[in-house]
Amino acid sequence: MLERFYPNEYLDSVYDIDFEMYYKQGIRGIISDIDNTLVPHGAPATEEIVALFDKIHKLGIDTCLISNNQEPRVEPFAYAVKSKYIFDAHKPSTKNYRKAMELMGTTPKNTLFLGDQIFTDIWGANRAGVQTVMLKKIDKKEEIQIVLKRIPEKFVLWRWRKKLQKTQ
């Protein structure tokens, strides 16, 4: 039952992702959350994240940012990293994951999702059939509704790790 919430991979940072490997595996589109996935909540795009997106694009991978935030937050960030974007996405609804793939011309088989929350980001991407990479949150400071979701999220990740240990 909890499997629907499990990420395919769990890493410390977006900078730990082997994008070349994913490209070789056929990934041609990346859908990503912004806040606490790429930068601290509310922060602008950093030089490092702009350089990372440039590297991803040079590999031949398209990108689309998908956020539950409003356009004034998402549009300037997307502009800075030269990415397509969807704001007010209503994650975990699958509608805008599918829209992101449509914008990039990709399918669930050749799309990767990056996010920091199980019950919005990862669950929505899993339901859309997209491979997922969950990243540790960047900033401890979060809105109360997110803090409350982090409690059951810890249990889900604990179960996921136990399952991984059994299969190894």
Score class of each variant (00 low, 15 high):
Glu153Ile: 00
Asn110Tyr: 01
Gln70Ser: 14
Ile86Cys: 04
Ile31Lys: 03
Pro152Cys: 10
Thr120Asn: 02
Asp54Ile: 13
Asp35Leu: 04
Gly124Trp: 05
Ala100Ser: 08
Thr106Asp: 05
Pro76His: 09
Asp139Arg: 12
Thr94Met: 10
Ile27Ser: 04
Ile56Pro: 01
Leu65Ile: 05
Ser13Glu: 05
Glu142Lys: 14
Asn36Gly: 08
Thr107Asp: 04
Glu153Lys: 04
Gln131Val: 15
Ile17Gln: 07
Met104Asp: 04
Lys149Ser: 15
Lys109Leu: 13
Met104Glu: 05
Ile56Thr: 06
Leu148Asn: 09
Lys154Ser: 15
Gly29Cys: 00
Gln145His: 15
Ala125Thr: 04
Val147Ala: 13
Ala125Ile: 06
Val74Tyr: 03
Ile17Ala: 07
Ile49Lys: 04
Gln145Trp: 14
Ala128Tyr: 00
Pro76Gly: 05
Leu52Gly: 04
Phe119Asp: 03
Asn96Ser: 10
Val133Ser: 01
Met134Tyr: 03
Gly124Phe: 00
Phe113Ala: 08
Phe77His: 01
Glu75Ala: 14
Glu48Thr: 11
Ala80Tyr: 07
Tyr85His: 07
Leu38Glu: 00
Ile49Ser: 02
Met21Lys: 13
Phe119Pro: 00
Ile17Tyr: 02
Val147Arg: 13
Ser83Trp: 06
Lys99Phe: 10
Ile17Met: 05
Asn126Ala: 08
Ala89Ile: 01
Met104Ser: 07
Asp116Glu: 06
Ser32Ala: 07
Phe113Asp: 06
Lys55Asp: 12
Gly105Trp: 10
Pro40Gly: 04
Asn69His: 09
Ile30His: 00
Val81Thr: 08
Tyr97Thr: 02
Thr106Phe: 01
Thr132Glu: 08
Lys141Leu: 13
Tyr23Asp: 10
Phe19Asp: 09
Val133Tyr: 01
Arg127Glu: 14
Val50Ile: 13
Leu112Cys: 02
Asp88Leu: 15
Ile151Trp: 08
Thr63Trp: 02
Glu20Asp: 15
Ala45Lys: 00
Ile31Ala: 01
Gln25Tyr: 11
Arg159Tyr: 12
Asn110Gly: 09
Thr94Ala: 02
Leu135His: 00
Ile34Trp: 03
Leu103Arg: 08
Lys154Ala: 15
Ile151Lys: 10
Thr37Ser: 08
Arg98Ala: 15
Phe19Glu: 07
Leu114Ser: 05
Pro72Thr: 11
Glu48Gly: 11
Lys91Phe: 07
Val81Phe: 04
Thr37Asp: 00
Pro152Thr: 03
Gln117Tyr: 04
Glu102Ser: 14
Leu112Ala: 03
Leu52Arg: 05
Leu59Gln: 06
Pro108Trp: 06
Asn110Glu: 05
Glu142Phe: 12
Arg28Tyr: 07
Glu102Gln: 15
Phe53Leu: 08
Leu135Thr: 02
Arg73His: 12
Ile49Asn: 06
Trp123Ile: 11
Pro44Gln: 12
Met134Ile: 08
Gln70Met: 14
Asn110Ser: 10
Thr111Met: 04
Val156Gly: 01
His90Lys: 15
Met134Pro: 02
Leu59Val: 07
Phe87Lys: 12
Phe155Leu: 14
Ala45His: 03
Ser83Tyr: 09
Val133Gln: 00
Gly42Val: 08
Cys64Asn: 01
Tyr79Trp: 14
